[in-house]
Structures are given as C-alpha cells and as structure tokens.
Simulated scan of single mutants.
Amino acid sequence: MANTPSITEELSPKLSPVKISTMEEVSPKLPLPTKYSIMEEVKANRSRGFSINNDIPPTTLQKTVAELVGTYFLIFAGCGAALVNKVQTLTIVGIALVWGLVLMAAIYALGHISGAHFNPAVTLALATARKFSWKLVPMYLLSQLLGATLASLTLRGLFRDQGDIQATMTQYTDSTSDLEAIIWEFIITFLLMFNICAVATDHRATKDLAGVAIGATVLFNIIIAGPITGASMNPARSLGPAVVSGVYKNLWVFIVAPILGAMTATLVYSILRVPKPYKPEESTESMYNELYIHPEV
C-alpha cells in the first residue's frame, strides 16, 4: 500500500521541473484584481466625473442673471453712497471707496459666471476685440440697463425724504464744455478698460488680483474726475438714474464717450498682446472661469 500511487497521481502524471518552468514562461499567471484596486478604480471614476461636471459652462440665463444682479449691487451701493453723502458727509474719497470696493466684491462673486462686465462699454469693447460673443451682447446690455434702473428705483424708494435722486446722476456744470466732458470720460474709461485688458484678459497676467486692480482703477478715477463729470465710465450707471429721475441732460456724453474710450483701449492693448501658446492638455479647460472673457460659442 505504501507504494501504491494515489488517484491524483494516476490521473495527472508528474511533471518534470523543466516542463513546469516552460509552462510558466509560456503562460504566466496574471494577478487577480483585489478589492482594494476595484475601490480605487471606482474612486478614480467618480473623481473624473466630478471634474467633467466642473467644466460645464454656465447657461445664457445664468450669465444674464449674474450681470443683472452684479449691476444692481454696483449701482445700488455706488449711487447710494452719493445719497448718503447728503445725510452724512462721506467726501469724494469715501464715495470713491464705496464704488471701488463694491466693484471688487462683485467681480469676485460673479466673475466666474458672467465675466463680471456690469458695463455696456466693457461688453461692446470686448465683443469688438473678439474676446466676447456678439450673440450674448443684446442680453448683456439689457440685463445691465435693467439692473441699473432697478437699483435707482430702489434708492428712490429708500431715500424718498430727499425728494429726488439727482445726486446720483452724472452731470457737469456749465463751466465745463461738452468737449471737455467727453475728453474726461474718454480718458478715465480708457484707463479702466486698458486695465481690464491687462489684468483680466491677457493670459500672461495673474488673475487672482484682477478684482483688486480693477476696483482700484475705478477708485482713483472717481477721485480725479468725480467732482468734474461724476466719473461715469459706464453708460448703464448714467442711464439708470436718468430714467428714474426723468432728467436726460447731457446724457449722450456719458453714453458715447465711455464706449469710444473702452473700444480705443482694447485696440491699443491689442498691440501689446501676444498669442497664447497652444497646449494640448489645456484643451479641456473651461475659459468661462476667466474674468471678462467668454469666447465664441
């Protein structure tokens, strides 16, 4: 019995060491997936799906609502400071600080949704420079004008004891000619738009401090030109209070001059701009996360 081969030995003859090694070389064992690797793969798939969802750009409705809300906040706070100045003196520096800070806050809050234009002159200038889709221009202009008008209506209701909100309007005295007012508004809007092109639309610039730079530009523009023309730089900022007050004197100056200044600034900065180098890995990145930039869709 000791020498009797077992059933297993009879059915499967012994393989020599040489044969075993040969079989191992021909058909090596493949490692079976473990529970840990499967879980890691699931997590990886989930993370890939999450990143894809993050790249989905905002809809046209979301962009227009963001422009309306942002313009409302801008006009409400900035023009509200002018009305508060009649109750408690803020001085031109205080009013300028309010304008600059509220614009900075609105850029950081809504820039990743709509580009944070809040200004028809900015929208038209970017569209002319082919940095913004012309298809979105009518919706942006309408939302900006509506936001400015609603903000002015709100201020008239809150400051009804003052009788009117003409303190929020952009006007210049008779000692300032139309040409002088146009030059003032052209220059300060040129400075604002040139700064926007430099810090928010150029791929070489650092976007983290774009809101601070743009808000600071508005601040010192108002300190310099505010006592002379009101420092509009924004047709919606002048149109909203004018519609609510019913006073349209010299309104055309605050529509034409900012638009011309903004367009000229984009033209001048185009001379300084260099083409962005193409990188294949950047093809899936969403450009809608950049301030003021929305390419053709």
Results as ranks from 00 to 15, higher is better:
6 S>F: 15
9 E>R: 09
9 E>H: 08
12 S>F: 05
16 S>W: 15
18 V>P: 01
18 V>H: 04
21 S>M: 11
25 E>T: 14
27 S>V: 14
29 K>T: 14
33 P>N: 04
41 E>I: 07
42 V>I: 13
54 N>V: 10
54 N>P: 09
56 I>L: 13
59 T>A: 04
65 V>P: 07
66 A>H: 09
67 E>Q: 00
68 L>G: 03
68 L>E: 05
69 V>D: 02
69 V>G: 01
70 G>Y: 00
71 T>C: 06
73 F>G: 07
73 F>I: 05
75 I>A: 03
75 I>Y: 05
75 I>D: 03
77 A>Q: 01
79 C>I: 06
80 G>Y: 00
83 L>R: 09
84 V>F: 11
85 N>L: 08
87 V>T: 15
90 L>A: 13
90 L>V: 08
93 V>Y: 10
94 G>Y: 07
99 W>L: 14
101 L>K: 00
102 V>S: 05
102 V>K: 02
103 L>R: 02
106 A>M: 07
107 I>R: 01
108 Y>S: 00
108 Y>D: 01
108 Y>R: 01
112 H>T: 07
112 H>C: 09
113 I>E: 03
115 G>K: 01
115 G>H: 09
121 A>V: 02
122 V>W: 00
123 T>L: 10
123 T>F: 10
124 L>E: 06
125 A>I: 11
126 L>W: 02
127 A>D: 05
129 A>H: 07
132 F>E: 00
133 S>H: 00
133 S>G: 04
134 W>I: 02
134 W>V: 02
135 K>M: 08
137 V>L: 03
137 V>P: 03
139 M>G: 14
139 M>W: 02
141 L>W: 04
142 L>F: 14
143 S>I: 00
143 S>L: 00
146 L>G: 06
146 L>A: 13
146 L>E: 01
146 L>C: 13
149 T>Y: 02
153 L>H: 03
162 Q>N: 12
163 G>Y: 06
164 D>N: 14
165 I>Y: 04
165 I>R: 05
165 I>T: 11
166 Q>E: 12
172 Y>C: 04
173 T>N: 14
173 T>G: 15
174 D>M: 08
175 S>I: 09
175 S>Q: 12
177 S>K: 09
178 D>H: 09
178 D>S: 15
180 E>P: 04
181 A>D: 07
184 W>H: 15
186 F>H: 08
186 F>D: 06
187 I>N: 01
190 F>N: 04
193 M>R: 05
193 M>C: 11
195 N>F: 13
199 V>H: 03
200 A>N: 09
201 T>A: 10
203 H>T: 01
203 H>A: 03
204 R>Y: 10
205 A>P: 11
209 L>Y: 15
216 A>K: 02
217 T>A: 04
218 V>I: 14
222 I>V: 12
224 I>A: 15
229 T>Y: 03
233 M>Y: 10
237 R>K: 12
239 L>H: 11
253 V>P: 08
255 I>N: 04
259 I>S: 05
260 L>N: 04
261 G>Y: 01
262 A>N: 09
266 T>W: 02
266 T>S: 07
268 V>W: 04
269 Y>G: 06
270 S>I: 03
271 I>V: 15
273 R>I: 08
277 P>V: 10
277 P>Y: 01
277 P>Q: 14
280 P>D: 11
281 E>Y: 12
283 S>T: 10
285 E>F: 09
290 E>L: 11
291 L>V: 13
292 Y>C: 10
294 H>Q: 10
297 V>G: 13
